[in-house]
C-alpha cells in the first residue's frame, strides 16, 4: 500500500479528515479535491491508483464524475462514499462504473479494507 495514490473527492473536506489521516498513517498518499471538476482535472493530469468519491456535490454530482472518470480510465477503481443509502443510489453507482458504494456513517476501517481490496493489497 505504501505510496499508492488515492484521490479523495468531497465538497466538505471535514468529511474526509479522518480518512485522510488514516490513509496517511497507513502509507498511502491521499490528495483531497473539493468538487467534481477538480476531480476530473486531477485524474487527467495524473491518474491516481484509486478514487474515493462523494455523491452529493454541487455542480457535478458524484455519479456524473464517476461516469466521466470511468470513461477515461475503465480500470481505475472508484469507491463511492456517500451519506445517501438509498438502494437506487447503489444501483446508479454501479451503473456509472463505481467499484464499491459505501454509506456513511461507517467505521473507516471498513473503507480502508475496501480500498485495499480494490488495490489488490489485502
Amino acid at each position: 500500500m505504501s505510496g499508492r495514490r488515492i484521490l479523495l473527492v468531497d465538497d466538505n473536506p471535514e468529511n474526509l479528515e479522518s480518512l485522510n489521516a488514516r490513509l496517511r498513517a497507513l502509507g498511502y498518499v491521499p490528495t483531497v479535491v473539493l468538487d467534481g471538476a477538480q476531480a476530473i482535472d486531477a485524474v487527467r493530469r495524473a491518474v491516481p491508483d484509486l478514487v474515493v468519491l462523494d455523491v452529493m456535490m454541487p455542480e457535478l454530482n458524484g455519479f456524473q464524475v464517476c461516469r466521466e472518470i470511468h470513461a477515461m480510465h475503465p480500470k481505475l477503481p472508484i469507491v463511492m462514499l456517500s451519506s445517501k443509502a438509498d438502494p437506487a443510489d447503489r444501483f446508479w453507482a454501479q451503473q456509472c462504473g463505481a467499484s464499491a458504494f459505501i454509506s456513511k456513517p461507517v467505521d473507516p476501517v471498513a473503507v480502508v479494507r475496501q480500498i485495499a481490496l480494490r488495490l489488490g493489497s489485502t
Partner: peptide, 29 residues
C-alpha cells in the same frame, strides 16, 4: 439528484455522524 429539505437534513446528519465515527475510530486506533 433531487433533494428536498428532509433529504438535506438527513444528509447533513449522516455527514455529521460520519465525522464523529471517523474521528472516534482514529482515536480508538
Amino acid at each position: 439528484i433531487r433533494v428536498d429539505a428532509t433529504d438535506a437534513l438527513l444528509h447533513d446528519l449522516r455527514n455529521a455522524l460520519g465525522l464523529v465515527v471517523g474521528l472516534a475510530a482514529n482515536l480508538r486506533d
